[in-house]
Design a protein around this nucleic acid. Structure first.
Lengths: 166, 166
DNA sequence: TGATAATCATTCGCGTAATAATTAATTCTG
DNA sequence: CAGAATTAATTATTACGCGAATGATTATCA
């Protein structure tokens, strides 16, 4: 048929993909946080789990998984490790025994005084001013919420026109 | 323990952490991309590896790992899987036999016509206008580069004053 | 030249992170 | 009130992602 043969070497470049920008920024954060987390003996998901429990203690696995955007099957092994470290308790809810309630131990609460506040480091490492920091954060959070909404609305998504190059 | 209901818990909230905003946005992207990647039979890191090879074929493992911000120890198993799928070749460099060169097969190049251009989906799912999209992307890339520089400059970083809350 | 240093890729161990399947408890419905 | 449907957590499996250690090759210099 029509000999297309598009000579446009318009290959989408890696740097143009927003997903890759987010992905690589996430990797960058994990490297910045690593030395501090290592000193605490925590991994990053463990760290945010503790923070979520400071905000609200005695949550269910389900509730935690929704706030952290993680699957319950991802949470369970992690929570067991945190329990083994002595930072939290896992107990069945007496009212509804399907639920497992997660509550911090004294040791878990004390983590707060042991160098958890490294907002200073992050701020400095980001190279952003205190003014632009929250603006950027809001914009990214907005992007995230749009993506989540889209992923829920079109689980199978209308198939894209093939051959399209962004 | 006394009843909860803390009126003035000045705990740093999860939503205030930029690292968590990035982390959760990354998870959101993986959910948006999942149906398409699933149809291609690729994972996300495999996907960006293919894209990087379109941009420049016949790269070394080292070169790829630097562009993708991944360690060689992460690349090797992934590249082996892509080779097993028939999308690329791994061959020792004849000049410098320390290097392994990665080159796409015809099958790997053909992936480009099989729905790889879903910039349309991403754009729509992001809920951003074509004007603000590149602005936000540049800002995040800038943040990433600052973080990477910081992580290289202070591998052990001066210990923060303990007790500081961001 | 011959020992030593540096570079590159690989392997291994640990901890996520996802889906699918399983088990247990609760709620809905006829 | 019994069986079905629903919900919550766990288990199993696959694939990252990193640091440390290993092995092979190349570069450097005494």
């Amino acid at each position: 048929m029509t000999d297309q043969n598009p000579p446009r070497t318009r290959t989408a470049k890696l740097a143009d993909f927003m997903c890759f920008t987010i992905y690589s920024t996430n990797l960058a954060y994990s490297r910045v946080y690593k030395p501090v987390l290592e000193a605490l003996g925590l991994t990053y998901p463990q760290y945010i789990t503790i923070i979520a429990l400071w905000e609200e203690d005695n949550q269910t696995v389900k509730s935690l998984s929704e706030k952290l955007f993680l699957e319950p099957s991802t949470m369970t092994p992690m929570l067991k490790r945190l329990e083994a470290m002595g930072y939290l308790h896992r107990t069945r809810d007496t009212v509804d025994e399907r639920n497992v309630r997660i509550s911090l131990t004294d040791s878990g609460r004390q983590l707060r005084e042991r160098g958890f506040g490294f907002g200073e480091i992050t701020m400095k490492a980001s190279g952003l001013t205190p003014e632009e920091f929250p603006i950027l954060q809001k914009a990214i959070a907005n992007l995230r919420n749009n993506l989540l909404k889209a992923s829920r609305e079109e689980p199978q998504g209308a198939m894209p026109v093939k051959g399209l190059v962004p």
